[in-house]
């Protein structure tokens, strides 16, 4: 109908309709950008406020009208935060757990995914379906029994308890299996004819071809160690094994009264910084991994 109207219009009218729609278009663009920029400011504000607060003196922080950039920049807050929350020790603990569990988890994921993707054995499909079914169950259900199990094993307050129970992720196995399946079977058979062993084939062909997935898994696993809170708080609360999130929360546990907020914000910034660095350099892998997994850390 609209096109009919336009067709019957005179040349002059055509022009004015065109400008009107042009103006409408520009207005819509301006509104779109305005909306996005306002939302972006809201999203960024907590980060800005964290850094702004972390550099203030306590007196300046407490002023009734807040300043939007510190008058005196207190880098010393960061040093204080580092020692107050014992961040050095927490960093080391978290790195140990993160690195060891990532490596072991990758090995297990690769060989399991390989067996499901390439090898033939009885009950393969049923077993795989069974594994996938466990993904529906909320983790809390496992935690209750696992807590008793690790207590019986005498694993409380060890690195083992932070690493072993989470080594196998059905989701990562699933992800990698899908990736392995895309590699043509002929390649595998050709390698077999040449007398290449399974492990060599895995190492030389399959792993290089599915490197992006493996990198995504590595990043998500490391971020998981960095962000895990519930399980570590339950089973490893001593200084020698405490992980960073738990340590950060318990170091500044008061929510009112005379908490030194600038120092607390400095500690928060220090804990957040490595995540941002990883994000800046490996953005592509993180976003790809997340869009397929839908899990937080």
């Amino acid at each position: 109908m609209a096109s009919n109207t336009i067709a019957t219009m005179k040349e002059k009218n055509m022009q004015s309709v065109k400008t009107a729609s042009q103006i409408g278009k520009v207005m819509a663009m301006i509104l779109t950008y305005a909306f996005l920029i306002v939302m972006a400011i809201i999203v960024l504000f907590p980060f800005y406020w964290m850094i702004n607060s972390s550099l203030k003196t306590l007196d300046e922080y407490r002023q009734s009208v807040p300043t939007f950039w510190p008058k005196v920049v207190m880098f010393s807050n960061y040093a204080e935060a580092f020692s107050a929350a014992n961040l050095g020790r927490l960093f080391i603990n978290t790195m140990i757990v993160g690195i060891i569990s990532t490596i072991l988890s990758l090995v297990i994921t690769v060989i399991t995914a390989f067996a499901f993707a390439r090898l033939e054995f009885k009950g393969k499909n049923i077993l795989f379906a069974g594994l996938l079914a466990t993904m529906m169950i909320p983790g809390e259900l496992f935690t209750i029994t696992n807590y008793s199990t690790v207590t019986t094993f005498g694993w409380i307050n060890t690195y083992t308890v932070l690493i072993v129970p989470f080594l196998v992720s059905v989701f990562y196995i699933y992800l990698l299996r899908q990736n392995f399946m895309q590699i043509p079977n002929e390649l595998y058979l050709a390698a077999k004819v040449d007398g290449t062993s399974d492990l060599k084939y895995l190492w030389k062909v399959m792993i290089p071809l599915s490197l992006p997935t493996l990198i995504s898994i590595t990043i998500l696993k490391m971020m998981g160690a960095w962000n895990s809170y519930i399980w570590p708080r339950l089973v490893a609360n001593d200084d020698a094994h405490k992980l960073i999130t738990n340590g950060l929360r318990s170091a500044f546990t008061e929510t009112t009264g005379d908490v030194n907020y600038p120092v607390q914000m400095a500690a928060v910034a220090l804990v957040s910084a490595p995540l941002f660095l990883v994000f800046v350099f490996l953005r592509k892998y993180i976003m790809k991994g997340v869009s397929r997994s839908g899990i937080k850390g």
Binding site: A40, W49, N227, Y261, Q264, V268, V271, S272, V290, K296
Partner: peptide, 20 residues
């Protein structure tokens, strides 16, 4: 920018919100 909140520690940034 819109993806940034994902790569945060929800305890740590929770403390920032608490401060705000």
């Amino acid at each position: 920018i819109f993806f940034l909140p994902y790569v945060t520690n929800s305890i740590a940034i929770g403390m920032v919100f608490a401060a705000m």
